[in-house]
Computed example of a mutant assay.
Amino acid sequence: MSISSQSSFQSPASEGGPGALYLVATPIGNLEDMTYRAVRTLSECDIIAAEDTRQTRKLLTHFDIQPKQLFSYHEHNKGASGPEIIRYIIEGKNAAIVSDAGLPAISDPGSDLVRLAIAEGIPVIPVPGANAALSALIASGLSTERFTFIGFLPREKKDAVALLQSLPASAGSLLFYESPHRIKKTLSFMQEALGHRRAVLARELTKRYEEFTRGTLQECMEWLEEHPPIGEYCVVLEGGSQEEEQKERDSWWQSMSIEDHVAHYEETGLSRKDAMKKVASDRGVSKRDIYNALL
């Protein structure tokens, strides 16, 4: 892959070059989540690509935005609609893409359109705004120093548990999206895979009935038994403990053969003798054991 550099605002279509692709954030609940810049961008763009055109028309009407062209762009038509939008941009038109709520290209096919644009040398310009996962995180009370966005877990239990167990303790707080009819099952998968951890259920973010439920996974599941799930959820799950992180650091070599383990240290500049000594220390065995294993 060759390196590329983009100057977002220095190749306007008026100079004969291609247009640009704007990634425009929309409200996640409260219409006041919309930024002034988002309104202006949608008003000025030649094309607006929307996940659900009916939902987007309501938003545009509220802000008195008259779209020049409104395209349907979603998971089921992206193969045809994406290249068509890119063709218009190459011809000099500016296009904006929006999702039903929040930032486009996160857990939706907008990311595919971004890749198509970059491949054609088209400037891709973010117009930031509300995001459900980060809004849930900053109000969760859990660590914000490190976090990993997972999105929706696989539907099958074995796949969901396998994914959860593959996440290192060092991943920090974990961010998930989930629907109301699956939230109980998802929490049970989390408990089975990761055990006793604190969690925060954030629902109806920025809406009138916004609610944060904080407790252990078990307590959150018990809460949902008494308070039936309503609305879309963001789940913030506590990261692994310091003890779990240390254990992972101490056992990073476990999937390696002894030969590969020794080679790893040799690549850092150690002599073979010193590398074998380090491997013996890591594995809690004698240097003779390592030497004999390599014969």
Results as ranks from 00 to 15, higher is better:
Ser2Leu: 07
Ile3Thr: 07
Ser4Met: 08
Ser7Leu: 10
Gln10Gly: 06
Gly17Arg: 07
Ala20Leu: 04
Leu21Ala: 05
Ala25Ser: 15
Ala25Gln: 11
Gly29Glu: 10
Asn30Ser: 11
Asp33Gln: 10
Met34Val: 14
Met34Asp: 05
Thr35Val: 08
Tyr36Asp: 09
Ala38Ile: 11
Val39Asn: 03
Ser43Met: 03
Ile48Asn: 04
Ile48His: 05
Ala49Gly: 10
Thr53Val: 09
Arg54Trp: 11
Thr56Lys: 06
Lys58Cys: 07
Leu60Tyr: 09
Leu60Glu: 12
His62Lys: 10
Asp64Arg: 13
Asp64Val: 04
Gln69Asp: 01
Leu70Met: 10
Leu70Thr: 04
Ser72Asp: 02
His76Phe: 15
Asn77Val: 06
Gly79Ala: 15
Ile85Trp: 02
Arg87His: 13
Arg87Cys: 11
Ile89Val: 15
Lys93Gln: 14
Asn94Gln: 01
Ala96Thr: 08
Ile97Tyr: 01
Ser99Trp: 03
Asp100Tyr: 11
Asp100Pro: 01
Asp100His: 00
Gly102Arg: 08
Leu103Glu: 12
Ile106Cys: 05
Leu113Tyr: 07
Ala117Leu: 06
Ile118Gln: 14
Ala119Val: 01
Ile122Leu: 05
Ile125Met: 09
Val127Gln: 04
Ala133Cys: 09
Leu134Ala: 06
Ser135Lys: 02
Ser135Asp: 14
Ser135Gln: 07
Ala136Trp: 06
Ile138Trp: 01
Ala139Lys: 06
Ser140Ile: 15
Ser143Gly: 13
Thr144Cys: 15
Phe147Leu: 13
Thr148Val: 03
Phe149Gln: 09
Lys157Leu: 02
Ala160Tyr: 03
Val161Ala: 05
Val161Gly: 07
Gln165Val: 04
Gln165Arg: 15
Ala169Trp: 06
Ala171Cys: 07
Gly172His: 08
Arg182Asn: 08
Lys184Trp: 00
Leu187Gln: 12
Gln191Trp: 05
Ala193Phe: 13
Ala193Ile: 12
Arg198Gly: 15
Leu201Ser: 04
Thr206Ser: 12
Glu210Ala: 00
Thr213Gly: 00
Thr216Lys: 10
Leu217Glu: 02
Gln218His: 10
Trp223Thr: 04
Leu224Gln: 13
Glu225Leu: 02
Pro229Ser: 04
Gly231Val: 05
Cys234Ser: 14
Cys234Tyr: 09
Glu244Thr: 05
Glu244Val: 09
Glu248Ala: 14
Arg249Tyr: 08
Trp253Arg: 12
Trp253Ser: 09
Trp253Leu: 00
Ser255Glu: 14
Ser257Asp: 12
Val262Ser: 06
Glu267Ser: 12
Ser271Ala: 07
Arg272Glu: 13
Ala275Gln: 03
Met276Arg: 11
Val279Cys: 15
Asp282His: 14
Asp282Gln: 13
Arg283Cys: 12
Lys287Phe: 12
Arg288Ala: 14
Leu294Val: 02
